[in-house]
């Protein structure tokens, strides 16, 4: 079946709503507007305003209400239009969702799923282009998922809803229009393992979200130059699949970590550290990183392009590792 990432997410929501009447979706503009990325288009007509619930502009209020509803026995899917606005709900996500189970000595778990759009590349300037997926991955108590394929867009949501603890799904804005084939019987997928999206033997491109698409393109280009690149899609940023990270480095002995987020203190630093801890003696070259340049994402197209990791940047980093001109700093 031909479909898009957007439709796959919508189908996942529809399936969840059908399967479990404790599930409901809420956010600003999910109902009458159809979702700011048209993900929930048509669902209001199908499920009604109780379960496709338009909220006022109150990120902290409705994210907290989702957490409360989860405590009260529901299985809410709380959307936050974009990760940028989730900063207004950080208190609820960090101080409540991620913390209540532990602080209550196991008495109260929080089975909430929070979905948000993330990332840049649409020329909407700094306040609408953040990549904070790695930030959230810093918080124990949360599970952080980054669906990068149609299968994952279709399949991660239900598995996340079955998880007894809070799960955040980051959907990169540039992926919504991604088209492709999806099996007719596509359904829930496991959420705890990384996946090798392309096998290779010379260098590992380790990434997630939109990085997977770019890394696959880069791997294509590298192949033409006779370089065999493996692409590891992390899929989950917390917990990180350490085994998969170490295994890919064992196979290729070189790693490029690709993250749209900033390098300093970012998830790329964490991944690099884990390679050092788990596969130091496997490395033929230092770990390279391709990250967002450390500026608030600018508006003009040429500057935004320069600020975000591009396929050429990945190509260059991989070539440098292979030719021995290692180190990108």
């Amino acid at each position: 079946m031909k479909t898009t990432y957007r439709e796959a997410v919508r189908e996942a929501i529809r399936e969840a709503m059908d399967r479990d009447d404790r599930v409901f979706l809420m956010d600003e503009d999910v109902g009458h507007y159809g979702g700011c990325y048209a993900v929930s288009k048509g669902l209001l007509e199908e499920f009604g305003p109780e379960r496709i619930r338009d909220t006022p502009l109150s990120e902290s209020g409705f994210v907290g209400a989702g957490i409360g509803a989860a405590l009260g026995g529901m299985r809410p899917i709380v959307e936050v239009m974009t990760v940028n606005f989730s900063l207004l709900a950080l208190d609820q996500i960090v101080n409540n969702a991620a913390t209540l189970l532990h602080m209550s000595g196991g008495a109260f778990n929080v089975p909430v799923v929070i979905r948000m759009a993330t990332g840049g590349g649409r020329q909407v300037a700094a306040q609408h282009s953040r990549s904070l997926d790695g930030w959230y991955a810093h918080i124990p108590g949360l599970r952080i998922l980054t669906p990068a394929t149609l299968e994952d867009a279709r399949g991660m949501l239900w598995t996340a809803l079955e998880d007894p603890d809070p799960v955040i799904l980051f959907e990169h804005v540039l992926l919504y229009n991604m088209e492709g084939e999806l099996a007719d019987d596509a359904g829930p997928v496991p959420i705890d393992r990384a996946a090798v999206r392309r096998e290779g033997s010379d260098v590992s491109l380790i990434t997630f979200g939109i990085g997977v698409v770019k890394a696959l393109q880069a791997a294509e280009g590298l192949a033409e130059e006779g370089i065999s690149a493996e692409v590891l899609d992390l899929r989950t940023l917390r917990p990180l699949d350490d085994d998969a990270i170490v295994e890919t480095v064992r196979r290729t002995h070189r790693a490029v970590v690709v993250d749209e987020g900033w390098r300093s203190g970012g998830i790329s630093a964490e991944i690099s550290a884990r390679i050092t801890e788990g596969a130091f003696y496997e490395l033929d070259a230092p770990v390279a990183r391709v990250c967002g340049v450390e500026v608030p994402t600018p508006y003009p197209e040429h500057l935004e392009r320069a600020a975000l990791p591009q396929v050429e940047d990945i190509l260059e980093a991989a070539r440098a590792l292979i030719s021995g001109k290692d180190g990108t700093l």
């Binding site: 209400a65 509803a69 009260g72 809410p76």
Partner: peptide
């Protein structure tokens, strides 16, 4: 449901419990 030490942090939770 706690014991919340963030001033006003419990109010949205109460709204959610009531919604449930």
């Amino acid at each position: 449901f706690g014991g919340n030490a963030i001033v006003a942090g419990g109010l949205p939770l109460a709204v959610g419990l009531a919604l449930a």
